[in-house]
Amino acid sequence: MTNDPAETRTCLVVDDSAVIRKVARRIIETLGFAVTEAEDGSDALLRCAEAMPDVILLDWNMPNVDGYAFLQALRQRPGGTGPKILFCTTENDVGAIARALRAGADEYIMKPFDRDILTAKLEQVGVVQADAA
């Protein structure tokens, strides 16, 4: 866990909304992360094959390969258990949250989120130090 520029952390933002990706990128970059983007689960798997990120902000409802299918596929890949997964959706019921955790998500973010929430969740999964924000 470091914010040393020499060990820049990487974050993959997966969301079919370009607006959400842009907002998330802007926040996460201010925390010292190098950010890449994917617009669905299929695209995200390709990004992970190129370079496994430290953390993935993962939308749940996407066309083609959704967040759930992506996460199941990712976790079975070599190195696929490494990234911390922040599951992100507008579905706020207990069942949806529990399902995401069972699938291997580490934390849960309800949309809409802001900088404070995103930072707090990144701290909770241990990829940002508590006093770094």
């Binding site: 207990v94 949250i97 969740k121």
Partner: peptide, 10 residues
């Protein structure tokens, strides 16, 4: 969401 780990939320 502000600071509460999701496992404890559930």
């Amino acid at each position: 969401q502000r600071g509460l780990p999701v496992q404890w939320l559930l």
